[in-house]
């Protein structure tokens, strides 16, 4: 069953993020990050130079994963390419065996390691979804015929902790109309907020995979609370992390994530894990299966 069929199946899904490295040591990404999760997850999200840090591209890594029989989800942002390049990359993705595409606007360039570069944002997430849908109908964004149609399972992101959340819901609906078939969310730490959000989002009847970022430390939690949009790690988790001895931190973190995943499970269609350099995704998944 491919990812698209799994979405249809109603099964609870697990996806995990794989981040290409800055450089060419591809083995690290494929063998150390992706391979251990073979069979444990339903899809590998490959990030597109997240946080505007220049890295190896999402497209070749997705291709290499697909070659190994691992299901990639190609993340594509509007930050670095204009409409011509974005469409071309989508066509390239298709011929390289990639079927799942997650469309994002992308972080602004000044947040990354090349702050002086030209920000593009020719399209935005909604218009890129629409363009990708148009491609699957055999036409480019200007209506020119394509020689052969690609097929994509298009996804998008949503931030349940956003304030005002209505604005996210309006945009979510727009994304669905533009072709999004599934959503992955920003990290969830507050189940109550997420439940409220899902109550509103249910009507769209589109699968949502709740985001999980395992905590590395209390400091990381505080940092995210201060700086990352829509994330608010509750005080109790920060305390748990702060009180845990160094060697117990991973255990505590897994305990927190498992608690969250348990909560999420009844609310939505899956979970999307973003380890962000945390090396214990496999252990977390093992613990989750117990959940």
């Amino acid at each position: 069953m491919n990812f698209s069929e799994k979405l249809e199946s109603g099964k609870f899904l697990v996806t995990c993020e794989v981040a290409p490295i800055k450089g060419v040591n591809i083995a690290k990404v494929l063998d150390e990050e992706a391979e251990p999760l073979r069979g444990k997850v339903d899809g590998f999200n490959v990030t597109d130079m997240q946080s505007s840090v220049m890295r190896l591209g999402s497209l070749p890594v997705c291709h290499l994963l697909a070659q190994r029989g691992l299901e990639p989800i190609f993340q594509i942002t509007c930050r670095d390419r204009n409409g011509i390049a974005l469409q071309s990359d989508l066509l390239s993705a298709y011929v390289l065996g990639i079927r799942n595409v997650l469309v994002l606007t992308g972080d602004y360039v000044t947040l990354g390691d090349h702050p002086e570069t030209k920000p593009v944002f020719d399209l935005d997430s909604v218009s890129l979804l629409k363009v990708a849908s148009t491609l699957t109908e055999g036409k480019d964004m200007k209506g020119n015929e394509l020689d052969g149609k690609p097929e994509f399972c298009l996804g998008a992101v949503v931030n349940p902790g956003y304030d005002p959340v209505e604005l996210q819901l309006i945009k979510m609906e727009k994304k669905i109309r533009a072709g999004a078939k599934f959503f992955q969310t920003q990290a969830i730490y507050d189940l109550e907020t997420f439940e409220k959000f899902m109550k509103e989002a249910e009507k769209f009847k589109v699968p949502v995979l709740g985001g999980i970022i395992p905590l590395k430390s209390a400091g990381m939690a505080k940092y995210m609370n201060e700086h990352i949009a829509g994330i608010s790690v509750p005080e109790k988790y920060i305390r748990m992390m702060a009180e845990a001895k160094k060697e117990e931190r991973v255990k505590t973190s897994i305990q927190i994530s498992v608690e969250l995943i348990r909560g999420i499970k009844s609310l939505c269609r899956g979970v999307h894990i973003m380890p962000m350099g945390w090396k214990h995704a496999l252990e977390l998944l093992a613990a989750t299966e117990l959940a």
Binding site: T105, D107, F121, D124, H227
Partner: peptide
């Protein structure tokens, strides 16, 4: 800063811009 036409990006924090 991104000149978005179809709604905000996910970067808004407390109603403020990520940039």
């Amino acid at each position: 800063p991104k000149g978005l036409l179809n709604g905000p990006c996910g970067g808004t924090k407390d109603g403020k811009c990520e940039v």
